[in-house]
Design a protein around this nucleic acid. Structure first.
Lengths: 130, 130
DNA sequence: CGTCATTGTACAGTGTACATGTACAGAGGA
DNA sequence: TCCTCTGTACATGTACACTGTACAATGACG
């Protein structure tokens, strides 16, 4: 499992770890029963302190993706996706999507390319199990 | 011009302001020649300190969207969109899009709905001037 | 059954960045 | 000329990310 972390990014490292792992979890590249590396090991790989990794694991445990035990480390568990209030989630999603698109558009990324990426993301969503 | 700011959001207020205004700028709802409200006024509207708004204006000026003068306030200027390195921008965009999608998916937002929003965003991009 | 290595946890310390408070500087109108 | 409205500069408070270090629990192995 090779994650990539950007120490210069404004988004905190522990949240980068959470985001990366959440992608793997949602896309079923990490499945119930799988175990994550010990915090000290992953921390060494990423070049950060192990408490930073531990914080990330705890966050994912709060989201019910992981179970953490003292000696056995972090284990992926079965998780039934919650039913979030649709309207609010939808509005937030639209807004953040708009922000993201505006940002890359401002950077000069061509609208057609952006549209293509959006369609691709949507397409790859069809085959996914939620 | 009515922006909405969430004081409880983890993303800093000044960047929320920047993101909101950038959407308006990219979508040509703010055009060259338009003037933004004075920092103290917008700050009052949003319930934050005027230095926070000033920081946002300065950020957008750094991005070449605005020109700021002492007495005349912030004015939208004509801006030719830069040519950013495509590969890097594309990779970053894909990644952040994945993160965003995974997050709402984890919250229980149905994949079909997500796909629909993505297609909508792409569609609304066709009519936009870059 | 005892010992020990391996795991995550707890908590204090430090740096940095966001938001504010306050004083200042410049520019335009009365 | 003066005054008020504008953005700027910088010091301060505070929250949080990351680290350092000590601790606790648990499983393996003799």
């Amino acid at each position: 499992m090779t994650l990539r972390i950007d120490l210069n990014s404004p988004t905190p490292v522990y949240r980068q770890i959470v985001d990366s792992l959440r992608i793997l979890l949602v896309n079923a590249e990490l499945n119930p029963g799988d175990t994550l590396p010990p915090v000290r090991r992953l921390a060494l790989d990423l070049g950060v302190h192990f408490n930073t990794v531990a914080e990330a694991y705890r966050t994912l445990a709060d989201e019910a993706w992981l179970e953490i035990a003292k000696r056995s480390g972090a284990t992926v568990i079965a998780r039934k996706t919650p039913r979030a209030p649709v309207a609010e989630t939808s509005a937030t999603f639209q807004r953040r999507l708009q922000e993201l698109v505006a940002e890359v558009q401002a950077r000069g990324f061509a609208p057609e390319r952006i549209a293509r990426e959006l369609h691709l993301a949507a397409a790859s969503l069809k085959g996914a199990k939620s």
